[in-house]
Simulated assay, not measured.
Amino acid sequence: MPRYALKIEYDGGPFSGWQAQADQPSVQEAVENALSRLDPGFAEGARIAAAGRTDAGVHATGQVAHADLGREWDPFRLTEALNFHLKPAPVAILAAARVADDFHARFSATERRYSFRLIARRAPVTHEKGRVWQVTHHLDAEAMRQGAAHLIGKHDFTTFRSSICQAQSPVKTMDEIRIEEREIPHGQEILFHLRARSFLHNQVRSIVGTLERVGAGSWHPSKVGEALAACDRAACGPVCPPQGLYLTGVGYPIGIFGD
């Protein structure tokens, strides 16, 4: 059975997350249902695997999954056909590619990239509702950069790890945390860009929630380093809500989609 990689974009708002769950809508189920209608060789009960199992409300602009199909497909035709069968779900296949039989969307990945959008303004968001986290106070982006610097490199991230995380080890290497600031009418948008080989459950949301406290002036930047060293979940700042989080890309040893 030929294996295909799929680059997927979705609005996570209507879903319980990526992973299929009983009696709950999921992105995985939406894609699998489209595949089963399209390719009879994609057997009933067959599963697809993704690079990241995003939580409820989390979005993606560059999720990657793989599927074993019943026949060879032209990648463009496969993309077009899947998008037809995915309607009206807010899920789109951006690209498809034939990959080696030993390719695995999760285990072959060498890095994952997430972005988080935070808007600071008094007036409620309208057009961006459900796609950003909003606070009503100004944030000091430079202070947040100073706090984030404590998290770069290889560390025990127990403090920033969910209590239900199933990873075997809390030790991860954070390759990059880049913080952008943009002026918007009557406020500011802060964008957090994080890059690592892999992340712990709720790690990004825990980090962003903690850095927001730094930007608000409630935490000194050095307190981020102290929280990290504590290896204690109780030392973490608030975990921010999911709607501002986006899985933006997955890296592999060789290019898959020509980008």
Rank of each mutant, 00 (worst) to 15 (best):
V91C: 05
K129T: 13
V204K: 08
G41V: 03
G217Y: 07
I256Q: 06
A123S: 09
G45W: 06
S206C: 12
S218G: 05
T54I: 06
A43H: 14
A235P: 06
R53T: 01
P124E: 00
L86M: 05
S162T: 09
S163M: 04
N202G: 01
P253R: 08
F192I: 03
P2W: 11
L247G: 03
Q166L: 14
G45S: 10
D175Q: 15
L245C: 08
R131K: 14
H201S: 05
R106N: 06
A95C: 05
H186M: 07
A100G: 15
P40M: 04
L35K: 06
V239R: 14
E176F: 00
G70V: 10
T79F: 01
K154H: 04
R233I: 02
G258I: 11
V58F: 02
V214H: 08
Q188L: 02
A65N: 03
D23P: 03
D68M: 02
H155D: 05
L118M: 08
R106L: 02
M144N: 10
G12L: 09
P90Y: 09
T126C: 06
E142Q: 13
V58S: 10
V239K: 15
M174P: 05
L211Y: 14
P241L: 09
T248C: 08
K223A: 14
R161D: 07
P185T: 00
F116R: 11
E180L: 14
V239D: 00
G225H: 02
A100H: 12
E183M: 05
D102W: 10
L194E: 06
T61K: 13
Q168S: 11
S198C: 10
T61H: 05
Q21T: 05
A196F: 01
L94C: 07
V31Q: 06
D140G: 03
H66D: 15
A123F: 01
S218F: 11
A50G: 13
P170S: 12
G12P: 07
T173E: 15
S16M: 12
S162Q: 08
T173N: 10
H193F: 06
V224R: 09
F15K: 12
L86N: 10
F42N: 11
P124Y: 00
I119G: 00
E180G: 03
Y4S: 08
R106D: 01
A167H: 14
R3E: 12
G153N: 14
L82D: 07
G70S: 05
Q21K: 13
L6I: 11
E44N: 08
R122M: 07
K129D: 08
P221H: 07
D232L: 05
I254V: 15
L94S: 10
E226F: 01
I164G: 02
